[in-house]
Simulated assay, not measured.
Amino acid sequence: MTDLTSIVEGLAKQALGGQAGQNNSGLGGMLGSVLGQLGSNQNNSSSGGLGGMLGGVLGSLTGGSNTGSEQNNSSGTQSLLVAVVPLILSWIQQQGGLQAALDKLRGSGLTSQVQNWVDPSTSEHSDVANDHVQNLFNDKEVEQVAEQTQTQKQDVYGAIGTVLPQIINALTPKGEQTNNQEANDDIQKVLGMVSGFLK
């Protein structure tokens, strides 16, 4: 079992101000809080668990009016971090799974960073520079996320650079000894939860 669900749940909590789920047990209780807080996306109420919660976050990001206030901006930044999760997980799958994605990252000049992310004893992970992210990720897919979230492509690249190390770390709780098949199964599970909100 990897920590992928926990890291995505944590990002979603941050996006919603950190109050969600403090007094509730499990994802179901947290989802109730999230839906109560958002209030506007009724079509998410039938969607349980993490998928519904992510949908709520993405819905609040794309459906919210732009008032330009700092609070909305901060919430938008956090929500963008959640919005790039499916993009990163799909990218890992496109490479052929976790091990192939790690090899690709190492081959693109990120060997020491990958070592740091995979090391279970390290909790601090530096972001990936935008130019590295641009070389790895499909520009059209990034543009699609930018359109869906009404943000600049550079912001999406920046969000990928922030979240990618966290995802790799979450997928490798036992470092190099992590079971890759387990990690790939967890990727598939989370992607299945959010697939309804991707298109």
Results as ranks from 00 to 15, higher is better:
residue 177 Q to S: 13
residue 156 V to G: 10
residue 115 Q to M: 06
residue 137 F to T: 01
residue 153 K to C: 01
residue 132 H to T: 10
residue 20 A to P: 02
residue 184 N to Q: 01
residue 30 M to R: 11
residue 168 I to Q: 01
residue 1 M to R: 13
residue 60 S to E: 15
residue 6 S to F: 03
residue 179 N to S: 13
residue 192 G to K: 03
residue 173 P to H: 04
residue 186 D to E: 15
residue 14 Q to G: 02
residue 66 N to Y: 06
residue 88 I to F: 07
residue 131 D to R: 03
residue 86 P to H: 09
residue 198 L to G: 03
residue 116 N to H: 09
residue 64 G to K: 11
residue 145 V to Y: 06
residue 165 P to I: 08
residue 45 S to G: 02
residue 157 Y to G: 00
residue 32 G to M: 05
residue 113 Q to N: 13
residue 157 Y to S: 01
residue 141 E to R: 08
residue 66 N to W: 10
residue 40 S to E: 11
residue 12 A to Q: 10
residue 7 I to A: 13
residue 134 Q to C: 09
residue 71 Q to P: 00
residue 140 K to A: 14
residue 85 V to T: 12
residue 73 N to V: 12
residue 20 A to E: 01
residue 189 K to V: 06
residue 65 S to H: 15
residue 125 H to Y: 09
residue 17 G to S: 06
residue 33 S to M: 05
residue 22 Q to T: 06
residue 68 G to V: 08
residue 146 A to T: 06
residue 58 L to K: 08
residue 48 G to T: 07
residue 35 L to M: 04
residue 153 K to W: 00
residue 103 D to W: 09
residue 107 G to R: 14
residue 29 G to W: 04
residue 95 Q to C: 14
residue 58 L to V: 05
residue 78 Q to P: 00
residue 45 S to E: 04
residue 176 E to P: 03
residue 117 W to T: 10
residue 97 G to I: 11
residue 28 G to K: 02
residue 175 G to T: 07
residue 171 L to P: 04
residue 194 V to T: 13
